[in-house]
Design a protein around this nucleic acid. Structure first.
Lengths: 280, 280
DNA sequence: CATAATTCTGTAATTTTATTACATTTAGGG
DNA sequence: CCCTAAATGTAATAAAATTACAGAATTATG
């Protein structure tokens, strides 16, 4: 279990000094790394052995070990930084930066994504008669990907990336249907109109988009995917990765809701695909 | 600068004992974390002060500080582990696991992706008269995404996910064209045939696929995307994320090759898109 | 409400660990 | 081959962490 999370846990049974120590560490973990037992003891007005007992009480070998664990944990949770790519960079350099920036955007999305919104979205999709997915531009491929994943659940799924088709599909929606609008900026006019129309016809609209955007405003439920704009010329487009992970989360939570009924579907699908593949 | 990379650097000017110490740390960094100066000194047969001087020589405060830095670095580079999702998991738990697994698959892809292959692929695409992208199933959305990104370069790009269309397109390829085949397993028969036909007509085939697979065997150049099969029921499909990052890398390297000529294109594209969006 | 039992905390002593000071050796340059 | 400078080791010192024990606080129980 994670050290800092453990210390933050206010429910844990802890003595008065242990509490003081935990609070101090949580308040400024970095600072603790450069302290000795004596320094930390003085900081929270306890004796040195108390600091040591605090560490051993946590299941560690002692104060130095505690600092080591803390350093490791801080390093681990330290958010990655998106790195701008410059024209002089070597290929391996570029690769490293792209991977790092991708990780950074994962961090951002993870921080912004709300559990309960995901849960609600899964509930809506679980109850829906059919699921429709719209996306344009970079989000078009995300919509198709989502369709591919949702096909495994048995519920009818339509993904379309043609605004004329989208209009036609929207016109046929009813209260039992669910429309998922995918847009990074949330400012695509065609998509916002689709959301508006769908809602007018009673369908539930889920937006995978920037919170507060026009598309978000016309959605019943928003899954916030907010990373910074892709301003730099050479920045990889992290937006669709973010959206895809959200799709992953959504479909997995949905799969768990569906439970066993869905495992059978999977088997059928695997058999249907078998003949399209080389044996080995 | 990174500590371990620094120590690995055999070019660095270093005294005999410093070299011994560096080697020992590089050989088993974890072990060093639980050693005292005395223990480490004994291990490499040097005196305790030498160990200390080694640390200060690295610009650190002393041996404890060295251990702290080392612990932090090990934590940072320790590969993430894909975590299986179980039916009892809470939504927030599921989310955390998916993000962690996604990071893990990024690690895998990064380790497997070869610089020089990327460079060659970029060179081929840079010189191509037109670029054609094929993918089926989960890789279909990846092909479309790649198309979306490559459209920024001015070179004609076709992405198709229909096997009949793919046949027709393949028939028209010539020596100056480049076909990119995207397949996670590399065992999709239709795609392997497309690669075969394209090569017969003289086009250069780049495979973004599993090394050694049928599709790879019919490719002129392979960008290896090998992560383990998605066996577990609830495992998110990390394959397409891996492929997408490879696309990111490829297009970015391509952008750098194209240099300034391509910045103008970007401006034109931005203007073309402006009217499809809400102002704010 | 008192008192016993237990847990927590601090003082002081001890041990371990890291660092400094200085002497010696070793390696490189003329 | 000698001189210089850097590198290493020995011994001493300082710092830090841990242990042992005793007193205080808290909790449970009659």
């Amino acid at each position: 279990m994670s050290l800092l999370a453990d210390l933050k846990d206010s429910g844990a049974r802890r003595s008065k000094s242990a509490r003081k120590l935990a609070d101090c560490v949580v308040a400024d973990p970095e600072a603790v790394l450069s302290m000795s037992t004596a320094a930390l003891a003085a900081r929270v007005s306890v004796s040195e052995p108390t600091v040591n007992r605090f560490c051993t009480g946590l299941g560690l070998k002692g104060f130095p070990d505690f600092k080591l664990q803390l350093a490791a944990e801080l390093a681990r949770q330290q958010p990655r930084v998106a790195q701008d790519i410059e024209s002089g960079d070597s290929t391996s350099h570029v690769m490293a930066k792209i991977f790092e920036s991708t990780r950074a955007s994962l961090d951002t999305v993870q921080a912004a994504l709300d559990d309960s919104a995901v849960e609600q979205a899964a509930a809506i999709m679980d109850g829906a008669r059919s699921i429709v997915l719209f996306g344009l531009g970079a989000s078009a491929s995300v919509a198709l990907d989502a369709q591919h994943k949702l096909l495994r659940f048995g519920t009818p799924v339509i993904a379309d990336t043609d605004i004329i088709n989208q209009r036609m599909i929207t016109a046929n929606l009813s209260e039992q249907d669910c429309l998922v609008c995918i847009s990074y900026t949330g400012r695509t006019i065609a998509l916002q109109e689709a959301a508006q129309l769908a809602r007018a016809s009673g369908a539930t609209v889920i937006g995978i988009t920037a919170p507060g955007s026009p598309v978000a405003q016309h959605s019943d439920l928003v899954l916030a995917v907010a990373c910074g704009e892709d301003t730099e010329t050479y920045t990889p487009m992290t937006s669709r990765l973010a959206q895809l992970v959200v799709i992953d989360v959504l479909t997995t939570v949905l799969a768990l809701r569906k439970g066993t009924e869905f495992t059978d579907h999977l088997l059928q699908i695997k058999q249907a695909l078998a003949s399209t593949r080389h044996k080995q």
